[in-house]
Design a protein around this nucleic acid. Structure first.
Lengths: 209, 209
DNA sequence: CGCAATTTTGAGGAATGTCAACCTTTGTGG
DNA sequence: CCACAAAGGTTGACATTCCTCAAAATTGCG
């Protein structure tokens, strides 16, 4: 995929399931007056539109952020795979449930955190997710190929305000963002500002009773 | 269940899956500073904590709003049911995916709608969901046993502000809320204010290709 | 090098929050 | 059936966060 390529549009009934292999993408909706709300960031390993195996149509759009690579799997094949392999189905389902946890965490952020907490929390989440798939460096930095405009659309803030929050974090030596990279200078302070607890990312699977 | 009864707490590893039969409940989280964010309203037909069949622990709490009735199904039995009956598993999964659509819609509301649009949108959603399960009257009213305080915690607003929005809606003859009931006076105006489109509730299932 | 996108900064305004009081309804026990 | 308490709803005055608009500075890219 190339940067900004549309992978699926609201209302589509795609016949292909996309699995992210390289690069970043995002889910988003466009409001009647033209505003945009980002609903999720997609990283390697994430399914873009697993829904289409069961739901009639896309209720949101998906767009690439960076150039990258996606696996395009015919819908019917995914369905067949699910039906044949119990373990695989479980795995897909688990991944779905984790996604739900992330969505709930975003709701908490948007509803009950102020702009600083909100930005800090999103940075924590993206860093941890990047770390989980081996996309962080030893020095506490990771790729963050997302413009402040897009971050603002994810955080329910304006780009201007997001920029001011980042400035404050930079001056306070909490983190530095720029040139497509996030550098965390003081992880403890960041976690504390965010009130971050990673439990909603559900790294552990329920084991048999 | 009795009103305000806790059905599950964040961090729990319940051995029972709850299915709502009568009454209303809610998912919610408590923020470090004590604020509460409601994540979902649960009505008859909704699973409270299907997650526990696969995920290690609850990442949020669930509490009854009204007195009511829940079916408590042993976790192992749900798992067995899923593994034995392909169609049932599909149905559960579908329901999970619909829930996800609702979560995404809440994110859009919290991120990109002002207080009036937000309140209007939630009222639309709850009315439609109540209608889907036969809990509305001919006169365009439905039960709404939710205090403005709880609504505020769902909408990411303060109770005071929610109250002001309701007052405006009442004066503008859009809707009336009170005594545990929502009366919609002008559905067209309400839908227009909310920018409501029901597609995210995914009433239609994907049919075989 | 020059254009386009993005980031940064400032000034002023609007939406929503905070605090505090009062009112209304509902339920309870005498 | 009344008195009271508790919960929830309503209103006002004022504060603050975040937004809007506008422009300048910087960066990325062909």
């Amino acid at each position: 995929m190339s940067a900004r390529q549309e992978l699926a549009q609201e209302g589509d009934r795609p016949e292909t399931v996309f699995l992210m292999l390289e690069g970043w993408a995002m889910r988003y909706t466009v409001m009647p007056e033209g505003g945009r709300q980002v609903l999720a960031f997609l990283m390697p390993g994430d399914f873009c539109n697993f829904h289409v195996t069961l739901l009639a149509e896309m209720d949101h759009s998906i767009s690439a952020i960076t150039p990258g690579l996606v696996a395009a799997i015919p819908r019917a094949q995914v369905t067949r795979l699910c039906e044949s392999t119990q373990n695989l189905q479980r795995a897909f389902w688990w991944s779905q449930l984790v996604d739900e946890g992330v969505l709930r965490s975003w709701i908490s952020s948007l509803g009950r955190r102020n702009s600083h907490e909100r930005v800090a929390h999103l940075m924590c989440e993206l860093y941890v997710r990047a770390h989980n798939i081996g996309l962080t460096r030893q020095d506490g930095s990771c790729e963050m190929p997302v413009s402040q405009l897009v971050l603002a659309d994810a955080l329910g803030l304006t780009p201007v305000h997001v920029n001011r929050v980042f400035r404050k974090f930079r001056l306070d030596n909490v983190l530095t963002i720029g040139r497509g990279r996030l550098i965390i200078n003081d992880i403890d302070k960041l976690v504390q500002i965010a009130g971050f607890q990673g439990n909603y990312l559900h790294r552990r699977l329920r084991t048999a009773a």
